[in-house]
Amino acid sequence: MLQSLLASLRITAATMAICVAGYSAAVWAFAQTVTPFTANGSILMDPARNPIGSRQIAQGFSQPGYFWSRPSAVDYNAAGAAGSNRSPTSEDLKARAAETVAAYGATPDNPLSADLAAASGAGLDPHISEEGALYQVPRVAEARKLDPVKLTELVNQQARPPGAFLSNGRIVNVLDLNRALDQLEDTQKQVVAGQ
């Protein structure tokens, strides 16, 4: 009995030292050396070195001049992520989708792309579909007084197939897109100022 306890404790110590401490340290050292940006959560900084978000994490957008992320059951809380966990047959889900449809002003002639109505698994999906982005182009263009053709080009430029030939359709990173949008406007202002 005592012998078994002692053997268990010695194996506990050995596995803790090697499989926990040694293994974690090795993976950590590898990650921090080879991929320091993603190893630290893909945190993006503004010019003053203040964090503005993670490239991998959705943030909430509600102003008309930005592209909006997918709905989030946790309001984009990146310290307490979760999905809606509603059944696809649920009345609550229907009510939520109706609100989203109203917010976008979707109509049967101009139906909303489904990913913009469906909440993601963690509530932090950083992507929307290319169709979902194009759907928002008229609103963003009007709010920013930009040429919709130029915005469409920007969306097309940023859209990527998530898994090369193994996936259908293309997706866009919303934070990347909105940062590019801000830059685009800055350059335009400079051009106008220069004229």
Binding site: A97, L112, A114, D115, A119, G121, A122, D125, H127, P162
Partner: peptide, 16 residues
Amino acid sequence: LPIAQDVGNLEGKELR
């Protein structure tokens, strides 16, 4: 609802 659904059920799924 006016929602274009052509890729199946997306609730709770990640696009990537």
